[in-house]
Design a protein around this nucleic acid. Structure first.
Lengths: 160, 160
DNA sequence: CGGAGTTAGTTGACCTATAAACTATTAACA
DNA sequence: TGTTAATAGTTTATAGGTCAACTAACTCCG
C-alpha cells in the first residue's frame, strides 16, 4: 500500500488515524485551495467571497431582503452580516431600506452598480470553474456531488 | 431609490450554471458544516481549529520547528502564523526558542501542557470523525478521497 | 572588506467570523 | 391597559486571514 498523496502534500509523518480523518482533511484542503482562486478573482472586482455571496443571494431573489433573511441563507452568523452590509453599502453595491410596516426590519437592495458588477463577474466565474474542475469527467463530477451530499446529509438535519 | 426593473431583468432563479459550479458549492458547504463541529470540540479545550492544526504539526514532527516551516505545512499565510503562535505561547501551549546558529530563525516547541491537551483531544476527535462520516462505506470514503485529490492535483502544482 | 540581494519573521491595516450583551420595536396576554 | 416576552438588528471584544511594507540577520561576490 502506497502512502496517500495528501499525507505527502502536508508533509505528514504519521499515517492517518482513519480514512474518516483523511476525508475530512481532504475536504478542508481542497476547499482552501479553491477558495484562494475565487477570492483572487473577486478581489479584482472589489469584492470578497462573503460579499459576493450576499450579492448573489440578492440577485437570485430579485427583490430586497431583510438582513436576517440573508443571514439565514449563508453560513455567516447574524452579527457578521451587519458589518458585511455596512461595507457593501459603503462601496455602493447595496442600499438599506427601512420597512414601513415593521420598523425593526431593514431591507437590503441591490444597486445598479451591484448588479453590473455581478454581471461582469459571470463570464470570468464560469471560466474559472471550468479551469479548476474541467479535468474531471462528467461522471466523476456527478459522483463527487453525490458523495459530498451524503456527507452533509446527517449534518444539515441538525444544523441548518 | 433603485429601479426594480433592472432587478427583474437580471433575476434568474436557475439551479446551477454547471456541474462544476455545483461541485464547488458542495465542497464549500460541506467544509463549512464540518468545520462548525470541529471548532465546537476544539473550543471546549481552549483551542481554535488553526491552533489545533499547529499543535498537531508540532506533535507529528516531534521536535521544535521554525515558524516558516510550520507556515509551509498549513494554508495559513506567514503573517497570520505570528499572531497564532503569539496566542498559543500566551496560553502556554508552545514556547519560542531562538536558534543560535542562525539568529533569524525562531523555533516553536510544544510544551507539556500543549502535549497533554492534544492527548486529551485524541479520543473525542476519533469519535467525532466517526460520528460525522461513519455512514459512508469504506469504498465511498476511498472514492471521495480519490476524487478530491484529483480536484487538487492541478492546484497544488501551480500554487508556488 | 562591503554593498546588494535574500531569508526569517513581525507589524499594521483591513475584512471576516464568533459569542455575548445591548437597543428598539412589536406581539402576547393577564 | 400595562407589563413582559419575543424579534430585528447593532455593538463590542477576540480570533483568524490577507496583503504590503518593514526590520534583522545572513550570504554572495566583486
Amino acid at each position: 500500500m502506497t502512502t496517500p498523496k495528501l499525507q505527502h502534500e502536508i508533509k505528514k509523518k504519521r499515517p492517518f488515524e482513519s480514512q474518516e480523518e483523511e476525508v475530512v482533511l481532504s475536504i478542508v484542503r481542497t476547499n482552501d485551495q479553491l477558495q484562494i482562486r475565487f477570492a483572487r478573482l473577486f478581489r479584482e472586482y472589489g469584492l470578497t467571497p462573503s460579499q459576493y455571496n450576499i450579492l448573489r443571494i440578492l440577485r437570485g431573489e430579485g427583490i430586497p431582503l431583510p438582513i436576517l433573511e440573508i443571514a439565514s441563507r449563508t453560513v455567516a452568523v447574524v452579527p457578521g452580516i451587519t458589518g458585511l452590509i455596512d461595507r457593501l453599502e459603503h462601496a455602493g453595491f447595496v442600499n438599506r431600506l427601512r420597512c414601513d410596516k415593521d420598523r425593526r426590519v431593514i431591507y437590503v437592495a441591490l444597486t445598479d452598480q451591484g448588479a453590473k458588477t455581478l454581471a461582469a463577474l459571470d463570464a470570468p466565474l464560469v471560466a474559472l470553474h471550468h479551469q479548476l474542475l474541467g479535468h474531471l469527467s462528467r461522471p466523476e463530477l456527478k459522483e463527487l456531488i453525490r458523495l459530498l451530499e451524503k456527507v452533509r446529509q446527517p449534518l444539515s438535519a441538525r444544523e441548518e
